[in-house]
C-alpha cells in the first residue's frame, strides 16, 4: 500500500491521474480521466447514457477496476491489494439507482449488518447508530418493517441511511432518483441537500439540475468516457464553453 505525499493528501481526498478503463479489448469506457476532488467538495456529474459517469464513480469504491492510471482515495491507492480495497470501502458509502436493499432483512437489520459484521460493533451500539441515521433521514418509525413494504422514496432514504452507518468520508450517488416516481423525488433530494450542507464529500451522478444549482461546488459534464467540461454551477449553466455541453444542456433543460 503506497502512501501519497502528505501535502497532496490534505488537498485532495480523491485523485484520478490519467485513469483509463476498457470493457473487453475494444470498448474504451474511461479515457485519460484527470480529476481531483477536495475534501468536503460536492460534485455533480452529468452526461448522456454510456458516457462513463457511473463507471467513474464505481471505480472509487472498486466496484469497477481501472486498467491504467492512478487512483488515490483518502491517501490509499486503489490496486489489486485486498487490504486497500477493504479500507477504501469502509470510507466510501454508495447509494444505487435500484436501492438494492436486502429484502429478507428488516430496515434496521439492513443498517446494522455492516457495523456488526465488518465494523465489529456490539449489537447495542450498532442499533443505536442505525436509529440515529434513520432519524437523520426522517424514517425512524419504519425501523422494523421490511423494505418491500415501503414506498420507493422511503426505500432510497433507507439506502442512504445504510451507507451513512459506515460513517464514511465520501458519499457516492449513482442516479439516486432515476427509479423513483416523480412525487417521491423531492423527499430524497431534500435528504441529499441536508447531507451536502453538513460538509461531507459528495459525488453525485444525476439529471436533477435543480439539485446541482442548489448545492454543487462543481458540475462535471462527461461524454464518451472523457470529461468535457467542469465548472461552478453558475458558469456551467450560464456560460457553457464547449459546443457539446451547449448541445446537451439545450436538450435536458429545454423541455
Amino acid at each position: 500500500m503506497s502512501a501519497v505525499p502528505a501535502a497532496a493528501a490534505t488537498d485532495h481526498i480523491i485523485a484520478f491521474d490519467k485513469v483509463n478503463k476498457w470493457y473487453g479489448d475494444n470498448f474504451h469506457v474511461l479515457r485519460d480521466i484527470d480529476l481531483h476532488v477536495r475534501r468536503g467538495e460536492r460534485i455533480v456529474i452529468c452526461g448522456p447514457s454510456g458516457s462513463g459517469k457511473s463507471t467513474l464513480i464505481r471505480c472509487i469504491n472498486r466496484l469497477e477496476e481501472h486498467q491504467q492510471g492512478r487512483l488515490v482515495v483518502d491517501g490509499t491507492e486503489l490496486t489489486d491489494d485486498v487490504k486497500s480495497i477493504e479500507k477504501t470501502r469502509r470510507q466510501v458509502g454508495m447509494v444505487f439507482q435500484q436501492f438494492n436493499l436486502f429484502p429478507h432483512l428488516t430496515v434496521i437489520e439492513n443498517l446494522t449488518l455492516s457495523p456488526m459484521w465488518v465494523g465489529k460493533l456490539p449489537k447495542k451500539d450498532a442499533d443505536e447508530r442505525a436509529m440515529q441515521q434513520l432519524a437523520r433521514v426522517r424514517i425512524a418509525e419504519q425501523a422494523h418493517k421490511y423494505p418491500l413494504q415501503l414506498s420507493g422514496g422511503q426505500q432510497q432514504r433507507v439506502a442512504i441511511a445504510r451507507a451513512l452507518c459506515l460513517t464514511p468520508k465520501i458519499m457516492l450517488f449513482d442516479e439516486p432518483t432515476s427509479a423513483l416516481d416523480p412525487e417521491m423525488i423531492k423527499e430524497v433530494l431534500d435528504v441529499m441537500i441536508e447531507l451536502a450542507r453538513g460538509g461531507i464529500t459528495m459525488l453525485c451522478v444525476t439529471h436533477e439540475m435543480g439539485f446541482a444549482k442548489a448545492v454543487a461546488d462543481r458540475v462535471i459534464f462527461m461524454d464518451q468516457g472523457q470529461i468535457v467540461e467542469q465548472n461552478t454551477p453558475a458558469e456551467f449553466f450560464g456560460n457553457p464553453k464547449s459546443e457539446r455541453t451547449k448541445d446537451f444542456l439545450s436538450k435536458i433543460l429545454g423541455h
Binding site: 483509463n20 474504451h28 485519460d32 490496486t79 489489486d80 491489494d81 468535457v228
Partner: peptide, 26 residues
C-alpha cells in the same frame, strides 16, 4: 482538453506479485 492520444486497445496488465493482491490470492 488535453490532446494526448487516446489508446484504443487495452494494454497488457501489469500485476504486482504481492500476497495481498486479489489476483494472487485467487
Amino acid at each position: 482538453m488535453s490532446a494526448t492520444r487516446i489508446a484504443p486497445r487495452q494494454p497488457p496488465r501489469k500485476r504486482d506479485w504481492n500476497w495481498r493482491s486479489q489476483y494472487v490470492r485467487g
